[in-house]
Design a protein around this nucleic acid. Structure first.
Lengths: 110, 110
DNA sequence: AATCTTTATCGTAATATTGCAATATAATTA
DNA sequence: TAATTATATTGCAATATTACGATAAAGATT
């Protein structure tokens, strides 16, 4: 016990959960917001932007990358990270749908 | 060490992270989707809908409630859970903003 | 080639999450 | 009021996450 029972849920549910989980830490939210702020993706200074040690930031970047929220490409001896549009579009669509449905229902509830 | 360094991030970043984290498990995504599916919030059968034991479901419901994604009101000896619109609207707005910004930038990146 | 810069990985400690059996609580019904 | 029904809490084992120092890897600079 202790591990998530992934196999009992739909692919879609798991995908949303993976994306949401990746954003389930303020440091990772901050990373996404920083990547939004800087137009280009000439990065490398993400570590300086965050109040965390370099290995910790590296680990958070890895998690965002594994979830598909960002992508990184090698740029000399640095690495250039940027947002992966597809995943954020997916989340946007998911919550837009829910909001739409809630509005239609007029929240006839509680 | 081991605990999240919440205090180093903004309130908004923490709020988004808390909401996202709550959705960071497929069971909790499934619960939200079930609450969307059934119009009313006369619940009590959430446990039967999920492939998890009753205490586990109860725990997931508690986490969704703590994050502010659902609310529960006592209805006889059962408890009536339903979606808390405010939090989902917040998430919807957050991702809509990001998507808008990404589109404006035309993703000049990588 | 030696050094610097940048990022990743390893190892490890602290803490959190997941899941469930057993049990408790509280309203309902018989 | 005793049994039933619905949900919560407790306690615990298994696993995952968070954070960071130390170190490795790999391209850039001198």
């Amino acid at each position: 016990m202790g591990a998530t029972k992934t196999e009992h849920f739909t692919d879609y549910q798991n995908q949303i959960a993976i994306l949401a989980k990746a954003l389930g830490h303020p440091a990772r939210v901050a990373i996404i917001e920083y990547l939004m702020k800087v137009d280009t993706c000439i990065c490398g200074d993400i570590v300086n932007e965050l109040p965390l040690a370099q290995p910790t930031v590296s680990q958070h970047l890895k998690e965002l990358k594994n979830a598909g929220l960002i992508k990184g490409s090698i740029e000399g001896n640095a690495i250039c990270y940027c947002i992966d549009e597809k995943s954020l579009t997916k989340l946007q669509g998911y919550f837009a749908n829910i909001s739409d449905s809630l509005e239609k229902k007029k929240n006839n509830c509680c």
